[in-house]
Design a protein around this nucleic acid. Structure first.
Length: 426
RNA sequence: GGAGAGGUGGCAGAGUGGUCGAAUGCGGCGGUCUUGAAAACCGUUGACUCGAAAGGGUCCGGGGGUUCGAAUCCCUCCCUCUCCGCCA
């Protein structure tokens, strides 16, 4: 959520900035609603003031043993009028709230303007795609030939966009997750956390998925009103919801391995082949809670932590900064890391690292005690995949494929694979 | 699943209809004392919000109700703890 005070004060300027990002704010409607709110709020508070004053008088009179019937009669229907005023105020506030929670974050000045992913800007590239010396196949062909990747079994069990992994492939998947998690904890200073994979509405509201993106979520159809997490960002970032952190507690750095569940509504027919876009996938997520002045350094650091995973796996990648038209709802700036996918002869997203500044913090009321400020201030929150496990497996399979259909295990993963050096046809 | 207890400020914990945004302690901050520190003592110390300001208003788990007036009474939901049962 944007700062309501700033939005009220600089409505025109912010509306213009939002428009450049593709969001239309109805300025006259917003302004008149705010004006209405102010009026009703003033009236309501005056009534409240009167009630408080008169009730105190009655209390005092009663304490002195005086007759209070006349004083009580004077109050008349104040209570009713106050109730009406409060109800009216609540209506306007709800209406305003609906507007506020639907407005996306403002992007950082360094974010390039653009319409869609075509306008994202590459900022760096690491390593070169290998020359395999033969026509690369994609992971579906390789995995199915090895008998270790089974989409048909998954569609029988559930439906489309799921997969069953077997044997060494299943272990490779697990090895990747363990490898990444260990790396972030041991080398990068993150604290490992294990969290619920079902969350309530409030948590999804805090990170910005609700109310606007409810259709993208899997809702557990029970009386408890829970949702399957679309990313560990939701439970992990919400660890600091409704809290006031001491200055010396920051930065907080959390790493979390979790499954993620996405409806993929609106992506019909997109990436239907293979494991690129599944309803269920795993991810090692990185979350940082930092002081506002540190958040852009933290974004660079967090992004480098995700990149380090690909470097250790020796997978070629490039890093792009998302343009204003492609960036997510809650982010002020996002770097996507795209790994080389030989089967498609292109780079595909494997990690997305964002600085949300105070957008999520305001929604979830996550604050810290700035010693230089008189009051608690909002923290900045960051998150990034470090990295998506299934896509990393896809990249390993395709980049390390051999002419004979086997797959060589990257050195970094061998300790996690019981020393296995190669996955081959049994 | 059954029975009971309880949710109050950063923490602990009083407060059962009125001068209570809330005693007291701890913690924090400032000071006195000290070479310095500790101890002791004194003072101070919740969050949010409207407003240019003066000054208002809101908040005692969430929501609703009773009342001139609710932390306190009623309803409802959520959560925590204890005991029993069941269970990976």
């Amino acid at each position: 959520m944007l700062d309501p005070q700033v939005l009220r004060r600089d409505t025109e300027a912010i509306a213009a900035a939002l428009k450049a990002q593709g969001y239309e704010l109805d300025v006259p409607a917003f302004a008149s609603l705010e004006e209405k709110r102010r009026e009703i709020q003033e009236q309501t508070q005056n009534l409240q003031n009167e009630r408080n004053t008169r009730s105190k008088e009655i209390g005092k009179a009663k304490g002195r043993g005086e007759d209070i019937t006349e004083l009580v009669a004077e109050v008349g229907n104040l209570g009713e009028r106050l109730k009406d005023a409060e109800a009216g105020l609540k209506d306007v506030q709800d209406e305003l709230q609906d507007i506020y929670v639907g407005i996306p974050n403002l992007t950082h000045e360094s974010v390039p303007a653009g319409k869609d992913e075509e306008d994202n800007v590459e900022v760096r590239r690491w390593s070169e795609p290998r020359d395999l010396g033969f026509e690369p196949r994609d992971h579906v062909d390789i995995g199915e030939q090895l008998g270790l990747l089974d989409f048909e079994a998954a569609s029988n069990l559930t439906g489309s966009r799921f997969v069953v992994l077997k044997g060494a492939m299943s272990r490779l998947h697990r090895a990747l997750a363990q490898f990444m998690l260990d790396m972030h904890v041991t080398d990068h200073g993150y604290t490992e956390v294990y969290v619920p994979f079902l969350v309530n509405r409030n948590s999804l509201y805090g990170t910005g998925q609700l109310p606007k993106f409810e259709d993208d979520q899997f809702h557990a159809d029970t009386e408890s009103d829970y949702f399957l997490i679309p990313t560990a960002e939701v439970p992990v970032t919400n660890l600091v919801a409704d809290s006031i952190l001491e200055a010396d507690e920051l930065p907080l750095k959390f790493a979390c391995h979790s499954p993620c569940f996405r409806r993929e509504a609106g992506s019909y027919g997109k990436d239907t082949r293979g494991i690129l876009r599944q309803h269920q996938f795993e991810k090692v997520e990185l979350v940082q809670i930092v002081r506002p002045e540190d958040s852009y350094d933290a974004l660079d650091e967090l992004t480098s932590h995700a990149e380090a995973v690909l470097q250790r796996l020796e997978l070629p990648y490039r890093t792009v900064v998302l343009c204003t038209g492609d960036i997510g709802f809650s982010a002020a700036k996002t770097f996507d890391i795209e790994v080389w996918v030989p089967g498609q002869q292109t780079y595909r997203e494997i990690s997305s690292c964002s600085n949300c500044e105070d957008f999520q913090a305001r929604r979830m009321q996550a604050r810290w005690r700035n010693p230089d400020a008189s009051r608690p201030e909002l923290v900045h929150t960051l998150n990034g995949s470090g990295v998506a496990v299934g896509r990393a497996m896809l990249a390993v399979i395709e980049n390390y494929q051999q002419a004979d259909g086997s797959v060589v295990i990257p050195d970094a993963l061998r300790p996690y694979m019981g020393g296995t050096e190669r996955i081959e046809l049994a």
